[in-house]
């Protein structure tokens, strides 16, 4: 059983490292205001036709309910039924970068870097960049 646990742990460690490997090219160099570009693999691989960023969602908190323009009794109700077990999560954004469009504009420019974040809600990848879209 111990060997199995160690084996699984090693497997996760290796996969995690492999998935985040490319982020090491920029992770310790990037600074706020830098221009972020798409990895050039997007323009070589015919399987990749678009690149979709993500938005971060957070669970509704009592303080958020206070700012809602609803009646007081509705606020009390929402707070009484508040699910506090929710965790932040990433969902695909409403915008997409089409590879064809990037070729037309002759640029892989994605947006302006704002900061880093490490979120564990989307598989093994935990190196995320926060950015303002181009």
């Amino acid at each position: 059983a111990l060997a199995a646990v160690i084996g699984i742990g090693l497997f996760i460690f290796i996969i995690h490292g492999a998935l985040n490997q490319d982020s090491k090219l920029t992770w310790n160099k990037v600074k706020p205001g830098d221009r972020l570009y798409a990895y050039d693999g997007f323009f070589k691989d015919t399987i990749l036709t678009e690149f979709t960023p993500f938005r971060l969602l957070k669970p509704i908190a009592a303080s958020d309910i206070d700012t809602m323009k609803i009646q007081e009794w509705e606020k009390v109700k929402l707070k009484a039924q508040l699910d506090t077990s929710l965790k932040p999560q990433l969902v695909t954004a409403e915008i997409t970068y089409k590879v064809d469009s990037l070729f037309k504009s002759k640029s892989s420019f994605v947006g302006i870097y704002v900061g880093k974040d490490s979120i564990h809600e989307s598989g093994f990848i935990d190196h995320w960049y926060i950015f303002k879209p181009a």
Binding site: L56, L57, I60, K132
Partner: peptide, 30 residues
């Protein structure tokens, strides 16, 4: 944007996998 019940947008920012980002223009466009 498909926001599940119980969640709200955390901020106005967008997120990308750091492995997909580069600090230089792709070679195809240089």
């Amino acid at each position: 944007l498909d926001i599940p019940k119980g969640y709200i947008l955390s901020n106005d920012n967008y997120y990308m996998d750091a492995s997909d980002a580069r600090l230089e223009e792709a070679p195809q466009f240089k």
